[in-house]
Amino acid sequence: MRLVAPETVTFTESGFCPGCGHGLAVRLIAEVMEEMGLSEKLLTIVDVACGSLNIDSWRFDTIMAAHGRPIATAVGVKKVRPENPVMAYIGDGAAYSIGLAETMHTALRNDNVVTVVINNSLYGMTGGQCAPTSLPGQITTSTPRGKDTKKAGMPFRVEEAFTGFDIAYLARGSMADARGMIQSKKYLQKAFEKHMNGEGFCLVELLSACPTNLNITPVKSVERIKNDMIPYFPLGEFKDKKEEE
């Protein structure tokens, strides 16, 4: 792990809570961009939720798009500027709930954009409501008696829904510890390599901590990723088109 963050990480007005995973994801992306020589080219599209704060966290040209629509917006950007790397950075609510149609049809078309999904198992910006990724029994502000899977279903697993599509890359990493971070960075790097090769849709999901909305300490929040989230959200690469061929 590097000790000094890339100069594209600015955090001029970062509003992330202590222990939040977004800052880690920003750093990983910035490192990958620097190492690949793409820092001056990356165009990013963030969602309106917590990830929107990244517009002030990194020094990449950035659009703050409507909730659930960053992937569609990214497709529009990429078509106009095919030479630039284009990344949508969104939460699990945007990717798998309100924006699921956009996620799915971008995958169906295998549009050449990178999507980074920060999965913290809840709606962060609005104060911790139940998400499609919330765990069975999870206490949230909209499931105060625990998520009832008979009513709300089991956690949404992107690999179950998307591996049937003809996409370039699909992986899930964890940001719970150094090992997870190193692995996650490799996934991001691979996604951007495939993206720059024009191979198509790449989605990397990163399991992230949200101590504020879970009302637990930052330390407990990362332990929860390892103990509670990973059993439902296994880590690894689920689609790697070139290796399959």
């Binding site: 659009i63 917006t73 497709v75 529009g76 956009e102």
Partner: peptide, 25 residues
């Protein structure tokens, strides 16, 4: 570039991206 979008929602938000990138969309 022509895209038959999956919905009007996607369509208008693709236009937003294209406009931000400089195209007449």
């Amino acid at each position: 570039e022509f895209i038959q979008a999956e919905s009007e929602l996607a369509g208008i938000n693709m236009v937003l991206g294209a406009a931000a990138a400089g195209a007449r969309a």
